[in-house]
């Protein structure tokens, strides 16, 4: 009897705990979404009247417009460059043995550990040294460095799932190394490449800390523009921008899921 009661209490409190954890994960997005549709200028909860005026303001505010465009440009360049560079490094790390391999791997994955403001500050100092501070190239390079570890990991895992005997079979059938790469390795790697690019794009689009250091008025990305805004105003425009952010990212993931399968893209199920 007591055993039964105890296990029931444990069972209920366990479910409660899981429920609370899940609530905490979605709560910020929920509160921000409610605030974005609040008619009043003061961030209050719950809203008394609903409106979409903050969305109008967000979409017409000049800094957000240029910030969004800058973000899209930087994200497109950074994630594409990171994909090309990261794929090369992932193949080198997976397939070849060479000196300082562990060292190279450590350096490539170091942005996971090194704080982003360190990377941003370092690149700002370097860029100032060569007279290229706050230009787009520096912003793009910064983002490439920050997202590179994720691309390398994603491609590396996909490489691990490719049976090397497929490449050996292709070679025995007369395919030179370049053709093996083009006809066997890259097509099989495609899901990993898409997932790597997608990861990079989402991270780059959201990157703030390092961007704060290396962007200027003309090159500021959307998160930096939002930071500038929140220091001057305290109305729900930012909440509206956040909702747009969430919607865009969700749309991107939905598309990826529909066409490629989210499990494949995010490498959640590696066994497949």
């Amino acid at each position: 009897m007591r055993r039964g009661l105890r296990s029931r209490v444990l069972g209920i409190s366990g479910k409660l705990l899981v429920g609370l954890i899940l609530a905490f994960i979605v709560l910020p997005a929920f509160v921000v979404t409610l605030a974005a549709f609040n008619d009043r200028a003061i961030l209050s909860f719950p809203p008394a009247k609903y409106s979409t005026r903050w969305f109008t303001r967000a979409l017409t505010y000049r800094d957000f417009q240029t910030g969004l465009w800058n973000s899209l440009v930087v994200t497109a360049w950074a994630s594409t460059i990171a994909l090309a560079v990261g794929t090369g490094f992932a193949i080198a790390l997976k397939r070849y043995a060479f000196r300082f391999k562990a060292g190279l791997e450590g350096v490539l994955l170091s942005p996971l550990i090194v704080p982003h403001f360190t990377i941003g500050l370092g690149l700002l100092v370097l860029a100032t040294g060569i007279g290229a501070a706050r230009g787009f190239p520096v912003v793009v390079v910064t983002h490439v460095i920050v997202v590179l570890p994720f691309v390398i990991r994603s491609v590396y895992i996909s490489l691990q799932n490719i049976d090397e005997r497929l490449e050996l079979a292709a070679a025995s059938l007369g395919a030179r190394p370049g053709r093996v790469l083009g006809t066997i390795t890259l097509p099989l790697l495609a899901p990993g490449l898409v997932s790597g690019w997608l990861f990079a794009a989402i991270l780059s689009f959201n990157e703030f800390t390092a961007s704060l250091f290396v962007t200027g008025q003309a090159t500021q990305t959307l998160p930096v523009a939002m930071y500038g805004y929140v220091r001057e105003f305290a109305d729900p425009t930012l909440a509206a921008v956040s909702v747009i952010y969430i919607a865009v990212t969700a749309a991107l993931l939905t598309v990826a899921n529909t066409f490629l399968g989210l499990g494949k893209v995010l490498n959640v199920e590696q066994g497949r």
């Binding site: 005997r165 050996l168 079979a169 070679a171 025995s172 059938l173 007369g174 395919a175 030179r176 190394p177």
Partner: peptide, 11 residues
């Protein structure tokens, strides 16, 4: 190299 040996292989 294997691609010039003209061998067939079944794994």
């Amino acid at each position: 190299p294997p691609y010039e040996r003209e061998i067939g292989i079944v794994f």
